[in-house]
C-alpha cells in the first residue's frame, strides 16, 4: 500500500504523462537532451530529483525497484530514495540486480549484466557534456544541432598534450549512435563500456537542469578517444578484499590512523552475491 493523500508514486498523472512523452522523444533520438518541465520534489535538487521523476513516471504496481548510490544499496541517499518510493508507491524493492525491473542509480552501473526488459535510470547533475567548455545553453544547443564537437576533442587533446593521457576519469564523454555527444552522468569511465549495446533501456534524468535523455537497448555508445590514445578503464593491482573479485570497480577504504587501505567492491550486491556463493571459510570477515 502507498501512503494516502498522494498520488501513486507521488507525481500527478498529467506530469507523469508529460515525462513519458519526453522519454519517448528521448528514445527516438538517442543521446539528445530533451527539455522537460521538471517539478519541485520533496527531495532536494542535486540529490536525484531527475532520476526520481523518471522513476515516478515509469513505475507500475508490479515493478520491483532497486536504488543504488556509488554502487551500494545501503548508502544514505539510496536508502532515502528507496523509502520515498516504498512510501509513495508501495512497490516491492530489492537489492538484487536480477530481481529488479527498474534500477535507479547514481554514479555507477551494476557489475552484474543487465537483461532485456530492465530499465536503468541515471541521476544526472549536469547533462551537458560541453558545459565546462561553453557556459551558454544557447551555444551548446547550437553545437549539438550542428554536431559541432570540436571543442570536446580539443579538450581531450589538451589533456594528452599536458599529461600524456586523457585525464578524464568520470563523466567521460561518449558518442551515442554516432550522432550525439552525451554525458554518461558521473559514472567512472570503468562503467562506460557497459553503456554500449546494453540490452537494458538506459534513461537519464536531470531535474535541476530540466533535461532527460536516453540510450535505447542495443545502441552503440563509444567513449571518445584518439587512435594513438585509445580509451582504457581503471584496473587495480589487488582483488576485492572481501569477495576476491578482480573485474569489479573497487573503492578504497582507509582502515586506521596510519592510512592503511583496503580495496572492496563498490557494488555491494555484486560483492555480497559472490561471497554467498563461496564457502564460508574462504571469506574474509
Amino acid at each position: 500500500m502507498h501512503e494516502a493523500g498522494y498520488n501513486f508514486a507521488y507525481l500527478d498523472e498529467q506530469t507523469k504523462r508529460a515525462i513519458r512523452r519526453g522519454l519517448l522523444k528521448a528514445v527516438a533520438i538517442p543521446g539528445h537532451q530533451v527539455p522537460f518541465a521538471s517539478r519541485e520534489m520533496p527531495l532536494p535538487y542535486g540529490w536525484g530529483t531527475g532520476g526520481i521523476q523518471l522513476t515516478a513516471a515509469l513505475l507500475g504496481r508490479e515493478d520491483v525497484l532497486k536504488v543504488i548510490d556509488q554502487g551500494a544499496d545501503d548508502t544514505t541517499n539510496a536508502v532515502s530514495i528507496r523509502r520515498f518510493f516504498a512510501r509513495t508507491a508501495g512497490v516491492a524493492t530489492t537489492t538484487r540486480v536480477v530481481e529488479a525491473t527498474l534500477i535507479q542509480t547514481r554514479h555507477r552501473i551494476p557489475e552484474a549484466p543487465l537483461a532485456e526488459g530492465q530499465i536503468v535510470v541515471f541521476q544526472v547533475p549536469i547533462p551537458e557534456p560541453l558545459r565546462w567548455m561553453e557556459a551558454s545553453e544557447r551555444e551548446t544547443r547550437r553545437m549539438h544541432a550542428l554536431k559541432e564537437y570540436g571543442l570536446m576533442h580539443v579538450s581531450l587533446y589538451e589533456d594528452v598534450a599536458r599529461h600524456g593521457r586523457i585525464a578524464k576519469t568520470y563523466d567521460y564523454p561518449v558518442m551515442v549512435a554516432g550522432r550525439y555527444l552525451m554525458s554518461p552522468s558521473p559514472i567512472p569511465k570503468f562503467d562506460n563500456p557497459k553503456l554500449d549495446r546494453s540490452p537494458a533501456l538506459q534513461l537519464f534524468g536531470a531535474g535541476r537542469e530540466r533535461r532527460l535523455y536516453a540510450v535505447p537497448p542495443y545502441t552503440e555508445v563509444n567513449s571518445l578517444d584518439f587512435d594513438d590514445h585509445p580509451f582504457t578503464v581503471e584496473r587495480w593491482s589487488q582483488p576485492c578484499a572481501l569477495c576476491g573479485a578482480t573485474d569489479s570497480y573497487l573503492d578504497e577504504i582507509i582502515t586506521d590512523d596510519a592510512g592503511t587501505r583496503m580495496l572492496v567492491c563498490s557494488d555491494t550486491d555484486h560483492c555480497g552475491a559472490r561471497r554467498a556463493e563461496r564457502p564460508a571459510e574462504e571469506c574474509t570477515p
Binding site: T76, H107, Y170, I187, F190, E234, S266
Partner: peptide, 9 residues
Amino acid sequence: LPHYVDFQS
C-alpha cells in the same frame, strides 16, 4: 553526498 566512486577515479 558520497562521491567516493568519482574520487576513487
